[in-house]
């Protein structure tokens, strides 16, 4: 498997660390509902098929990425994007082929947990 990193370009998946479900929202710091915390800490969906997930370019630029991957075929369905304060920076290594830009609807979905506080 190869993962496109917007900073480093297309790299072998062995350089990355899996970061889990990217649809999970961390409750706000002052959230007191224990149930909300249990959801965040323990409950995951484990879908068969497309899944939005985080990957960390541990052996590369150390950026956190978000991408959509099919858990059955391991095909990456959306072009990985940076998350964090650098999320809106243009890619320094635009992909040469493969990978399609994702629609704004999905972008909305991804940016939500990022800004949640």
């Amino acid at each position: 498997m190869r993962i496109y990193c917007p900073i480093c370009g297309e790299r072998d998946s062995s350089e990355f660390t899996y970061g889990g479900d990217a649809t999970v929202h961390r409750p706000a710091m002052d959230e007191t509902d224990v149930e909300a915390w249990c959801q965040y800490v323990y409950n995951r969906k484990n879908p068969r098929g497309p899944m939005l997930e985080y990957w960390h370019h541990t052996q590369g630029c150390r950026a956190w990425l978000v991408l959509e991957r099919d858990t059955v075929t391991h095909k990456i369905l959306s072009q990985p994007r940076l998350v964090g304060p650098w999320a809106d920076q243009p890619a320094s290594n635009p992909p040469t082929d493969g990978g399609s830009d994702t629609g704004s609807a999905e972008r909305e979905r991804v940016s939500e947990p990022v800004g949640a506080e």
């Binding site: 960390h56 956190w64 998350v83 964090g84 304060p85 990022v114 800004g115 506080e117």
Partner: peptide, 11 residues
């Protein structure tokens, strides 16, 4: 720490 700064508290 990188996870927290990128994903949880990017601000």
């Amino acid at each position: 720490l990188e996870h927290l700064l990128s994903i949880v508290w990017p601000e």
